[in-house]
Design a protein around this nucleic acid. Sequence first.
DNA 1: CCCCCAACTGAAACTGATTTTCAGTTATCA
DNA 2: TGATAACTGAAAATCAGTTTCAGTTGGGGG
Lengths: 147, 147
Amino acid sequence: MAKRLPEGWLRRIQLAGYRLTRPRQAVLGVLAESEVALTVAEVHRRARARYPRLGLVTVYRTLDLLVSLGLVHRLPAETGGQLYIRTDLQPPSHHLICRVCHRVVEIPCTGLEEMTHEIEQVTGFAVQGHWLELFGLCPTCREEREK
Amino acid sequence: MAKRLPEGWLRRIQLAGYRLTRPRQAVLGVLAESEVALTVAEVHRRARARYPRLGLVTVYRTLDLLVSLGLVHRLPAETGGQLYIRTDLQPPSHHLICRVCHRVVEIPCTGLEEMTHEIEQVTGFAVQGHWLELFGLCPTCREEREK
DNA sequence: CCCCCAACTGAAACTGATTTTCAGTTATCA
DNA sequence: TGATAACTGAAAATCAGTTTCAGTTGGGGG
């Protein structure tokens, strides 16, 4: 159950000069074990099981820290909030998010580079970044719905 | 200066059974004249010049109304808020947004349908929707920056 | 032309998410 | 062990957006 933190997380954090405190370990553990993207509130709820005194503010701060270190992705959710999921070793790309369970699948960025280049030619804009997110139902929630 | 409202806006609104009040006219006028996407606060600020008693709540309500009638687009902004810009006669598609001045260019949805289909095959997800937004600098702001 | 009333309005209070502030706590290094 | 800078939680502040409600008004019917 208490799966080990992903290789190197602890070291990455300490090398960057940050301290490894109990509240952080609680948040790290939750992120490390979840295969689906979590809301801040859900991270807080789960992490409290490991360290009940944990405050919501610290969850925000720790998530920001993990994002800045590149250990987790922050995904804008359809509803306006943010979702968090570990980056692992996958390169940053685009996301396909299940509307029901928040399972996230990374999808390759096929064709967007050339599309971007074409758009720069046509519009004169300097394209600096983009968002591509797809929403739908994962196979499991799809079945669930069909019952 | 006081450019006429886009052809048909007034009629669309009244045909849908809505009243054409002074507060609404103020918001409509602002949207009609802006070539760039505006935040709610900016719409409010500008519309007050036309009708000083205008409340922020009414701006929200009117924008929702215009979106539901398809007269303006609502775009999620990078910073978390929403931006609004008139739809005009362009079909809904994807957006390239200038980070500085909020100028918006519509871009065609090339290749996304087939990409979507391919993704459904590979992942088993039922894809129901997507967001594609590009961010960058428009030609004008680009020059400005280079000075 | 005026009257009526449902549609509409603004103010204020509320909500939910996130940030700031600050006094107290704690991990780590000497 | 200390010392101390990093870190923490609680509370208050902020910010975007919504709800509520008592008062106002556009515009069709008389």
